[in-house]
Amino acid sequence: MKAKVYITPKKGILDPQGAAIEHALPALGFGGVANVRVGKYIELDLSGRDGSDEVDKMCKKLLANPIIEDFKFELVPD
């Protein structure tokens, strides 16, 4: 299986990168855009196993910082 992990800034946490992008878009003619959040996307190859619990632990322990980040992931066949 392949795990696709999405890490985003926690709701309500200031996201300076997102704010910068949100600020830049109207200047390029893209109006009406709000709540831009910049996160990380991580792919992991689990060499065949279905590692839902394992990925959850990885996220909590290393991949995301629970103080400022949320995460979600999906498992897809290779």
């Binding site: 800034p9 200031l14 300076p16 990168q17 910068a20 910082n65 103080i67 400022i68």
Partner: peptide, 10 residues
């Protein structure tokens, strides 16, 4: 306690 993220001015 706490966490650090990117400088506001990036």
């Amino acid at each position: 306690p706490g966490a650090i993220h990117r400088n506001q001015a990036l």
